[in-house]
Each structure stands twice: as structure tokens, then as C-alpha cells.
């Protein structure tokens, strides 16, 4: 059967793979090459070696963005996962209206980042103006917490769904056994439920970490990096290097930043998956 199928690859694999070459492999390799060049368009590139990378690490804005992104990622990942897990626990207790709650909490995920960003931009500016505080464009603290609130609002529903699926797959007999052995609700949670939903925790941590670290749309729409680039995350910083700064050198620096950014995302994914996989319980 394998032999008969083998020669059909032009029909089965080729269309996807051609598109993959156009949409991923070629731009990826070109991007890698251009990160060592000074260029304005792809055809006008001059090799400058590691010069761009040196400039990336000398750019103060890069460190500001990295710090902001790191802090945002850590805080939002923890908040989203803790809250989503709490809501999931509450929704698996068999309360009336569980379905309605679940439906409502999940809803923001279907709305795009740009639209969400503007909805919250309007709302937060209104709250700030009533409180007599500077608006988002001049207020980086509000920008930071605004983005955290926005991400929580959007992502809790998604992670909650995954946690609910995880919690529901724990065999009832396991929880029953713990109860008979005299475990309190808290002990059941820590010793039985959490170890058994470890796969869900792995997935959710991974998703929230990478989502927050790579955040772009929400950042652009909510704060746009204002005031004075202080709420500019890495993805937006790279974008601005490419399209908002004049001077031929900046495109090369932007591309080098993108490569560094890409390496960081890969590293985070690897470490995170390894770290949580080792804590999973075999069922």
C-alpha cells in the first residue's frame, strides 16, 4: 500500500509544500540572510556581518521593550492561568447556568486583537478621565495594566475551556477515593486534581507564554507604544524599526532583532515544554 501511495506525492504533498516554500521557507531564509545586511529592499542588500546584531544590543529601546515584554509576559501568564483555573474549578461544581457562564467567558476570543484593543482603549480612557488621571497616550502605568486586563479578559475564557476539559477527564473514582481516605477539599485539589490536569497546565502555560510574548495587535491598538515607546513590546518594536523609522540602517537592525526575538521564542517554548512535561502524571 505504501508503495502504491508513494508515487502520488505530487498530488498529496506538493501543493502544500510549494505554498510552504513561498510562505515560510524562502522568507525565513531570506530574513536570516538580511539580518547580516544593510538594506532598503531585498535586492539592494549589502553584507555588513554581525554589525546589525551589535547595534541591536546597543539600542536602549531594545532593552526597554525586552524588559516591558518580559514583565508583561510573566504577570499575564500567572494571572491568566490562576484565574482561568479558578473559574474552571467553579464551573465543574455543577452550578446552575454553567453553560451560560462558559459561553460568555469564551466570547472575547473570537474577536480580533485590533478590535479588542480599541474597545478597551475607549473604556480605559474613559475611566482614566473620570478619575482625573492622564489618558493612555501619556500614562505608561495605565498602559501596562490596561494590557494585562485586556489579555486576561481575552484569554481566561480560552484557558478555562482547556482546564474544564482536563478536570472533567479525571476519573470520578479517584476523587471519591481521596474523599473516603479523608482528604479535605484543599488536599484533593493539590494532591489529586492538579497533578492529573498537568497536561492541560502544560498546554495553557505554553499558549499564554507565547501569546503574551509575541503580542502585537492588542499592543498596537491599545497603547501603540505610547507614551514615547515606553509600552512598546518587542513585536511592535521590530515593526516600528522596519516601517516607522527612517534611515537605511534600521531595516537591517529590525531584521536582526527579529532573529533574536525568534530565538527567544524558540528557547521559551523548549524550556517550558521540558519543565512541565517532567511533572506530568502517567494515567
Amino acid at each position: 500500500m505504501v508503495k502504491a501511495t508513494k508515487k502520488w506525492w505530487p498530488i498529496f504533498v506538493l501543493p502544500t509544500f510549494l505554498a510552504f516554500i513561498i510562505g515560510f521557507i524562502v522568507p525565513f531564509l531570506e530574513g536570516l540572510y538580511l539580518s547580516f545586511c544593510k538594506f532598503t529592499t531585498i535586492n539592494k542588500a549589502a553584507w555588513v556581518g554581525i554589525g546589525n546584531y551589535v547595534k541591536v544590543f546597543e539600542d536602549a529601546q531594545f532593552w526597554t521593550s525586552l524588559g516591558f515584554t518580559a514583565s508583561f509576559t510573566v504577570v499575564s501568564t500567572i494571572l491568566i492561568n490562576v484565574l482561568a483555573f479558578a473559574v474552571a474549578l467553579a464551573l465543574t461544581k455543577g452550578i446552575k447556568g454553567t453553560n451560560v457562564f462558559r459561553t460568555v467567558y469564551f466570547m472575547p476570543n473570537l474577536i480580533g486583537g485590533i478590535v479588542l484593543g480599541y474597545i478597551w482603549n475607549i473604556l480605559i480612557n474613559c475611566v482614566l478621565s473620570i478619575a482625573g488621571q492622564p489618558l493612555l497616550a501619556l500614562n505608561n502605568k495605565a498602559g501596562y495594566w490596561g494590557m494585562i486586563i485586556l489579555m486576561c479578559w481575552q484569554q481566561i475564557g480560552y484557558m478555562m475551556i482547556i482546564y474544564i476539559a482536563g478536570l472533567q477527564s479525571i476519573p470520578g473514582s479517584l476523587i471519591e477515593a481521596a474523599r473516603i481516605d479523608g482528604a479535605t477539599g484543599w488536599q484533593t485539589l493539590i494532591k489529586v486534581k492538579i497533578p492529573n490536569v498537568m497536561p492541560s497546565i502544560t498546554i495553557c502555560m505554553f499558549l499564554t507564554l507565547t501569546n503574551s510574548f509575541k503580542l502585537f495587535d492588542q499592543n498596537l491598538a491599545l497603547t501603540g507604544g505610547d507614551p514615547n515607546h515606553s509600552t512598546e513590546m518587542l513585536a511592535l518594536n521590530i515593526y516600528n524599526n522596519f516601517y516607522a523609522r527612517s534611515g537605511a540602517a534600521w531595516k537591517g537592525i529590525g531584521q536582526a532583532k527579529a532573529v533574536v526575538f525568534c530565538l527567544m521564542v524558540i528557547a521559551i517554548s523548549m524550556i517550558q515544554l521540558k519543565a512541565t512535561r517532567s511533572k506530568e502524571v502517567q494515567q
Partner: peptide, 9 residues
């Protein structure tokens, strides 16, 4: 791989 890596190219 994040989109920023290949957006320009």
C-alpha cells in the same frame, strides 16, 4: 517562528 521574523521578506 513568530511572524515578525519573516514579515518583511
Amino acid at each position: 517562528v513568530p511572524f515578525q521574523m519573516l514579515m518583511f521578506t
